[in-house]
């Protein structure tokens, strides 16, 4: 976290708009499809870049929603090696985050080799373009 910057709390609406729990599914879908889509869109983890104070509120809200939060200081290596890659080897899974565009860029390139891609990518408000909130989900999940 940058020194001297206060932590701003994300509102619940902000988190839902930009956060991980974007489990809305088309109302026209069949019930089994809804269940499958919701399950595959619920992130197994939420990654935040702890260098940015804006991510603290985001992480708190994710925890409040029962999601596992992982933090890093810009470097995605450990998250990839210890969690994401082993998780994807076991099967498809969604992952969300609030990181720099560079971190998302690296993860997006790795996702393609694991039959997943970015389904949501939005500039995070109040972060002066430094942060992007995103979800990566398996192929077949809209």
């Amino acid at each position: 976290m940058f020194p001297g910057k206060g932590v701003r709390m994300a509102t619940r609406r902000q988190f839902l708009a930009h956060g991980a729990a974007v489990a809305a599914v088309p109302l026209v879908a069949s019930l089994p499809a809804i269940a499958a889509a919701a399950a595959s869109r619920t992130p197994f983890a939420v990654l935040v870049d702890s260098r940015y104070p804006e991510t603290a509120a985001f992480a708190a809200e994710a925890r409040f929603q029962g999601l596992a939060v992982r933090s890093m200081a810009g470097d995605i290596t450990r998250f990839w090696a210890d969690e994401l890659e082993p998780r994807w080897r076991r099967g498809p899974a969604a992952v969300s985050g609030l990181t720099t565009p560079d971190a998302l860029h690296g993860l997006e390139l790795l996702a393609a080799g694991n039959r997943a891609r970015v389904i949501r990518r939005e500039a995070y408000p109040d972060a002066k373009g430094q942060l992007v909130s995103w979800t990566i989900a398996p192929i077949g999940v809209a």
Binding site: A73, G74, D75, I76, T77, W80, A81, D102, A103, H105
Partner: peptide, 19 residues
């Protein structure tokens, strides 16, 4: 030690273009 820190924690004004 394999690393991915090219993405995010190592970028400076003179590094390779992002993206």
């Amino acid at each position: 030690i394999p690393s991915l820190n090219l993405f995010g924690s190592r970028n400076g004004p003179n590094d390779a273009p992002r993206g």
